[in-house]
Amino acid sequence: MSILVHANTRVLVQGITGREGQVRTQLMQGYGPQVVAGVTPGRGGEEVLGVPVFDTVQDAVARVGTIDASVVFVPAQFAFGAAKEAMDAGVKLVVIVPDRVPLHDVMKLAKFARQTGAAFLGPNTLGCLSPGKGVLGMMGGSPEAARKFFRPGRVGISSRSGGITSSIAYYLKKAGIGASTIVHVGGDSIVGLPHPAILKLFQDDPETDVVVMFGEIGTTQEERVAEMMRRGEFTKPLVAYIGGKQAEEGTRFSHAGAIVEGGRGGYQSKVDALRDAGAVIVDNFEELPAKTAEVLARLKRL
């Protein structure tokens, strides 16, 4: 197995007629899984890249049947409406790609997701990719690049930075290490599936032996992972790198979620919490592949 995306996942693309929507639909079609429908209000009845376009998600579900996941490529200010519409229509996983989705929209979506039993990845995410099986979102960019960058294996990857997500997977691949599923949780301060939720999925995935996590300053995600480890809810080996060591409090350089506020979410507290809980902390990013290889070798000996 893998998590979130599998070879047989049936995908809907919201905003399929836009620039990003079309380019990434080609990615998903070329790499997997199956894109069964697209939605752009007012463009129902058209066809894009061989995919039927509908005015609403409801229409799409009625016509093509079950949809497992929807990928949202609409501008940020419309992301809330699009994601809510998908959840309303019974879609259980929504991947929200756009950056700059307002925070209160995300909190409302979180409430709505709880009510409908849905989950959402992002916002501000590249999506997720299970090597050799399929991708949701824009990870890899094109089918050729995705095939070049990623290989199947037994390491789960969870990251708060998009580019770094692919970098980790690629540099692990160069060291001969493949991945089960590669997940970019999104760069914002509140995301639908943060590290703890992803690690829970990896814990239950029989094809994942080790998890590599890219954390960052800001939010409580890494601290909560440490708590899960202490409580025995996450028991697989974890290799982690925490970015933002140099960042000063109160200045935001990069992701909206990467900011230390009121002394919380700092670099050292995250490193300490994870190390105490038994994670392998990597100080230099370049050492990630070697450290992961060590951890894998140790597992094999057991």
């Binding site: 770094i164 970098s167 140099q246 992701h255 990467a258 990013f285």
Partner: peptide, 15 residues
């Protein structure tokens, strides 16, 4: 830079 995490790392390399 390009991307939050990668930009920070690249700036560190410059420093």
């Amino acid at each position: 830079g390009a991307g939050g995490g990668g930009s920070m790392m690249s700036m560190d390399a410059l420093v």
